[in-house]
Design a protein around this nucleic acid. Sequence first.
DNA 1: TTATAAAAAGGAAACGATTTCGCCTTTGTT
DNA 2: AACAAAGGCGAAATCGTTTCCTTTTTATAA
Lengths: 340, 340
Amino acid sequence: MEKKPATIKEIANRLNVSVSTVSRALHDHPSIGLRTKTQVQKLAEELNYEPNQAAISFKQGKTLTLGAILPNLGEEYFSMAINGIEDVATKNNYTVLIGQSHDDVEREIKIVDTMRRHRVDGLVVSLAKTTKSYEHFEQLKKYNIPIVFFDRVPDDTDAYCVSCNLENSSVELVDWLVSKGHKQIGFIKGPDSIILSQERLNGYYKGLAKHKLKPDKSLVVSTDLSKAKTTDAIHKLLALKSRPTAVITFNDYVALDAIKYSRSQGVKINKDIFFVSYANLPITSYMDEPPLVSVEQFPYQQAEKATEILFQLIQNKGLKEDIPKKLILESKLVVNMEVK
Amino acid sequence: MEKKPATIKEIANRLNVSVSTVSRALHDHPSIGLRTKTQVQKLAEELNYEPNQAAISFKQGKTLTLGAILPNLGEEYFSMAINGIEDVATKNNYTVLIGQSHDDVEREIKIVDTMRRHRVDGLVVSLAKTTKSYEHFEQLKKYNIPIVFFDRVPDDTDAYCVSCNLENSSVELVDWLVSKGHKQIGFIKGPDSIILSQERLNGYYKGLAKHKLKPDKSLVVSTDLSKAKTTDAIHKLLALKSRPTAVITFNDYVALDAIKYSRSQGVKINKDIFFVSYANLPITSYMDEPPLVSVEQFPYQQAEKATEILFQLIQNKGLKEDIPKKLILESKLVVNMEVK
DNA sequence: TTATAAAAAGGAAACGATTTCGCCTTTGTT
DNA sequence: AACAAAGGCGAAATCGTTTCCTTTTTATAA
């Protein structure tokens, strides 16, 4: 019971052949005779032989391991994303090493370090919301470890990124609200460090312009995504003399916090004030008063695409010219049918 | 830019010392003189030397990698658990290889295989709900890969397990309901393959007995945790001539599905029927009508403990006698304060 | 000084698998 | 019958580190 796993050497000894023969036999190499081949394979089976992945990784300089660095798996958005990563990895016979930054740059840096030491073959990353400098990722180039970012992508033209275009659907969000008769549309903005915060805002302004509504600074408030700041933000909107009749929130979590606070202030949700949002998370289906409309950002697909691109990078160690640096998926407006 | 990472050999050559000296210098070995030591360390710094983890893993037969096999990270319960695993792993300088079974045994088996090939040093596992045979885990003993299960643990006296005692709090759940005047208490049971399903039920019966309420088979219905089956289950309860005034559900997700369906049937939640549950997930805090009481099962702590035990097993390759096979944490009744 | 111990450093094997090169048999061709 | 081609296999290098065992150098005591 305490015996070590069988090695090629052992098989070789027992059969009185060389290790090279065993290795080749196990790989179905043409230069090994049928007799020896079957003999070897049979014994390997019997001895329960498993190639030592660590040895192979070492020899080949490939670990068959991918790193995934995400802000927080507790957010459904990212747990959906990890599924995309895992699925593609599995298809390619890879495993996934995980690291959560918990939206903390320091932690992110440490994780990158660990991943590098473990010599992962590549990295799929969604940035912490506080990440502003990308040095820790730059380093990896020296080690030839390719990276693909998704969703929370860096502001770096040279990086491979997969993200969702939110501007168009932000405009559509305004379209939809206007079509329902709204003229005072509030906007809860996310942190500037997240690039897509700006994209959402741009769409919002474009949408207003499209409908000849003039933008009103007081209708735009910010949150760092914490419950406290979100509450502050919605509080400001509620306190306005001309209260908005609809509010676009950064994402579903922000929407939920905002909705909760609003309700506590006696606001009738989706009546006095309509809430619309981004992400379209499954958990909102459990809500009694979910955001009426949410922009689906396809986290699974984003992560899936990102991982596929990563594999291209891993394989095409040479010609990377034909791999697009920026892949932009289109987001999609989803109207919650159950409501109304 | 295309140069390979620096190796010990390179450092040795440049300084005209042997590789063994470099290796020892980097490890602060006493038999290396201060002069050489600092020289080596300085050059290592300059060359940006990083030990090749793959080589070390290979040499030492340790990968500094842990496997975590969980049903589904999309469930908040397990994403909280993975945090516990990751935190302990990080503290021990380990990384976590992840695998989601998605509650499918076949997938679970494949993941175990992959993990074994990658020669993880140990495994933290929460079983798929359909897992009934544990052969795929048994095998790992041959490879000396220790396993610790948590929450969804096997029915195997020989396995290391960390779980929560739910019987006591199930009794308390009944206590609480009875104290609120309930006499007709429904129970939505989970699948038998999950051991804790039975424990919950036992507690329920004990609780009834304690208060001299006689058990009524028709008040106990089952779900496989899918939305459809849960809906079936709650439907049966609602159809009873003597409807329950309170329902104990398998977990928060089941509660949410049941609540949703009940509401659609015109039931006034936590008025006509009170819902209580297990898990106490953060997402329920977003609900307007969450389960009134939920049994906190401390997923983070369970996973944390499990991982700590795993490290003991990894380290004490010899004397495992003093490590408890079954660690049982106590669950805790949490009354949702915001409601009522 | 010399003998001897302690300190510092080097040599080399080992870990498990892959792979290049080359050797020795067959077998086939003319 | 002679020689080439191909089939089947082995030896050895290699990947980067660690570690046991020597060897050399330096310091200390006799």
